[in-house]
Design a binder for these strands. Structure first.
Length: 721
RNA sequence: GCGUCUUUAGCUCAGUGGCAGAGCGUUCCGUUCACAUCGGAAAGGCCGUAGGUUCAAUCCCUACAAGACGCACCA
């Protein structure tokens, strides 16, 4: 044992061996925990299987591991269920880039072949991810690991789809969706990035009106001119009035529409609408049952309605159209400094082209109401609290959810579509062969589900809903810990779907961590080149240093500037613990802690101080205030235990005065501190623990020894009462 | 435009209705004795601005400013 206690602590010689020890012990699996009482459950946010762990994952793994290790030591039947995410669109985009590099493209590829290739790609990457999760020290139960495309996951998702369909919560509708012309799929609001741009705003003559537009290339089919009913400038024009006028490709007849949503202050207060390619215009057209016409195809090219411009890409067409309008004398003026926000694909930056598409939608209202009710009642504890307000605000303004994606990498939607009337029917067993509305021919729906639809069901799916034993034992789960950015897209949806499917909340507490930024407080991004790889840091400073460095002072919901120096400082701390332990062990050889230890006065005081600390931090652990516990432990260990208690003991040992008191205090303090530090710095503490002598015949310091990870947390509030 | 958060030491951040805290960094001193990945000491802050509540405000309230993030169909 002594040979192992070399001078500096060496994480590289330790971590892999210790993790193996834990894993082989079986204690990651709550079924194997000794004397466990109530369950404590965390479902790991499924990690994108296609890449590597990033700094944010490092924080996730650390926080969740702290929670689960703490509860395990407190005697709970602690389950942390790991998962991997096929990450539908994300992964497909990564794979498409790979194809591009190889000079291939997914378009025209056999979908089955493409799916197989992506699956292979994902599975080979997932090994990497899993070893990185292990590297972080995550004490999750690998025997319960789930992948978002596992057979039973798909089965449950289908059941939910079917049930929602039967309950009338799902409809297939021709609605305007956000279409990425590059990736050839519709996207959810999450997958869209707003970008501020300065463009030309053209003032065009439209008969007696002047209309302002930034997108003249969409205007071919515009035959409605809309204005506010109270706009005095246009009082002479009546709702429904027809006006003949000269337009881009010749004379047309326009119809006047009066609508209150028009902003009289903007432009000229009059506008024409393009319902097929604009959300607002679509809404207006829906309200008044106006015609809708497609102008731009799925690739971003103009359709025959554009006349001589047909087949041109809209990017090229704009200037040509303006040129023609100018020649016709229809351009009144151009404002070159028009600042506005455009919507782009968050992956490729391509301008989103709204299109009307037939897709599956979920009616959100009936799902929102019960969710709002329970959130309002405070049945879900939000940390930090203001996320509750944010959630309520969002839920009150929610729109129906488009769950269809035109990509292969995902769970296929089990449905048939009528080729004649467009009606869609859920078809889990592949039995539907005729349209149940018009008796027409049907084809299989080729779309896949939005990955959030399945991950929104994650807490109960992973636990084997509806009949699994785990579902009975571990659901509702205790904590959902994830990034603040996912509060709507994932957390709110899990609450709604959890309530809908199981009738119960999916988790009692939502813990949201902030973003991990670079040392200067900038968002990390590949293009900026400021991405910090957690694996580089753990390799350099050790996982324990990385973990506690991510935690100290990092309050929930607040972003964290990750400076390397910060981690470096905690490497020194790991070493400090190591050396203090060496001192204690070397100086207490052949010493036995007496049954009823008696301390001298100052040692007694120190012993009481530790109890006070334990009381405080246990309360703070229960309140999820890890940032303060970590700091207190750091401080106490270094500046009280090492600087005061150890220094004091040196004198006593040298003078051979009150040595029993000193040695007892050293050992009991070390044992206790190792335990409470363990959730934060599991490797170094477990390693030292393995070297603590067991002397059963002499009654101490440890009568028998388990792994530190399943030792009892040294303070219990219940005893305190 | 709406919403949420932030503003405290050079940097990153805790914190409390009653002389302002930590880590890192800086300066000075110290190498046998667990650890130089160390020890000892020190410097350093009108707690964003302006009002208000209070015996007392960095903390509570109001306005403003700056920044971050989220939401939104302004053509």
């Amino acid at each position: 044992m002594e040979e192992k206690l070399n001078k500096p602590y060496d994480p590289k010689a330790t971590e892999e061996r210790i993790y193996k020890l834990w894993e082989e012990s079986g204690f990651f699996n709550p079924d194997n925990l000794p004397q466990s009482k109530e369950p404590f459950t965390i479902i790991m946010p499924p990690v994108n299987a296609n890449g590597s762990l990033h700094a944010g994952h490092g924080l996730v793994m650390t926080i969740e591991d702290i929670m689960v290790r703490y509860k395990r030591m407190k005697g709970f039947k602690a389950l942390w269920l790991p998962g991997l995410d096929h990450a539908g669109f994300e992964t497909q985009v990564v794979y498409e880039r790979k194809l591009e590099k190889e000079g291939r493209t997914r378009f025209g590829m056999d979908p089955e072949k493409l799916y197989k290739e992506i699956l292979e790609f994902t599975l080979s990457n997932s090994k990497n991810i899993k070893s990185q999760i292990r590297k972080m020290g995550a004490s999750c139960d690998w025997s319960r690991e789930k992948f978002t495309l596992d057979e039973d996951v798909v089965k449950t998702v289908y059941q939910t789809f079917k049930r929602m369909n039967e309950d009338g919560l799902i409809y297939r509708g021709s609605r305007i969706v956000s279409w990425c012309p590059k990736h050839q799929t519709s996207l959810s609001d999450l997958e869209i990035k707003d970008e501020e741009r300065t463009d030309n705003l053209y003032y065009l003559k439209y008969g007696p009106f002047t209309i302002a537009t930034a997108r003249p290339e969409t205007k071919f089919g515009d035959k409605y001119v809309v204005m506010h009913p109270e706009d005095k400038r246009y009082a002479e024009y009546k709702d429904g009035q027809k006006i003949n006028l000269e337009w881009i490709n010749g004379p047309i007849t326009a119809t006047v529409v009066k609508d209150e949503t028009i902003d009289m202050q903007f432009g000229t207060g009059a506008m024409t609408i393009t319902p097929w390619h604009d959300n607002a215009d679509f809404e207006i057209a829906e309200r008044y049952k106006l015609d809708k016409e497609q102008i731009i195809d799925e690739n971003g090219k103009l359709l025959p309605i554009a006349g001589e411009f047909a087949g041109l890409h809209i990017k090229k067409a704009r200037s040509l159209i303006i040129e023609k309008l100018q020649n016709k004398g229809l351009v009144e003026k151009t404002d070159a400094n028009y600042k506005h926000v455009v919507r782009t694909c968050y992956k490729c930056g391509t301008l989103i082209e709204p299109q009307i598409k037939s897709q599956w939608f979920i009616k959100m209202k009936p799902l929102v109401e019960p969710a709002l009710k329970i959130i309002n009642k405070g049945e879900i504890n939000y940390i930090p609290e203001h996320y509750k307000k944010i959630t309520e605000y969002w839920l009150q303004n929610i729109m129906d959810w488009n769950i269809s994606r035109q990509i292969v990498w995902g769970i296929p939607i089990p449905a048939k579509i009528c080729t004649e009337c467009g009606h869609g029917m859920a078809d889990l067993e592949n039995k539907v062969s005729k349209c149940d509305k018009c008796n027409g021919k049907v084809v299989k729906d080729n779309d896949t589900f939005d990955a959030w639809f399945s991950s929104g069901q994650w807490p109960f799916i992973t636990l084997g809903y509806p009949s699994g034993q785990d579902f009975q034992t571990f659901y509702p789960t205790d904590v959902m810990e994830t990034g603040g950015g996912l509060v709507f897209f994932w957390v709110a949806r899990m609450i709604m779907l959890g309530l809908y499917v199981t009738g119960k909340i999916p988790f009692k507490t939502v813990y949201m961590h902030g973003m991990v930024l670079d040392a200067k407080g900038q968002k990390m991004s590949k293009s900026k080149g400021n991405v910090i790889d957690p694996m580089v840091l753990t390799d350099k400073y050790g996982t324990d240093a990385f973990r506690i460095g991510m935690i100290v002072g990092n309050t929930p919901g607040t972003s964290l500037a990750l400076a390397e120096d910060r981690i470096k400082g905690y490497k020194n701390f790991a070493n400090k613990i190591w050396n203090a332990a060496r001192f204690v062990l070397q100086n207490t050889k052949n010493f036995t802690v007496p049954e009823n230890p008696s301390y001298d006065e100052e040692d007694k005081k120190s012993d009481e101080e530790l109890t006070t600390l334990l009381k405080e931090i246990t309360k703070e652990m229960d309140e999820y205030k890890f940032y303060i516990v970590a700091e207190k432990l750091y401080h106490y260990f270094w500046h009280t235990f090492a600087d005061i208690i150890i220094e004091r003991s040196k004198k006593k040992i040298a003078e051979n005065k009150n040595t029993d008191s000193a040695k007892t205090l050293l050992l009991t303090h070390l044992i206790t501190l190792l335990k409470v530090l363990h959730p934060f710095m599991p490797f170094v503490t477990e390693e030292i623990w393995s070297m603590m002598p067991v002397s059963p015949s002499q009654g101490g310091p440890l009568k028998n020894k388990n792994l530190l990870m399943v030792e009892k947390w040294p303070f219990d509030h219940a005893q305190d009462l």
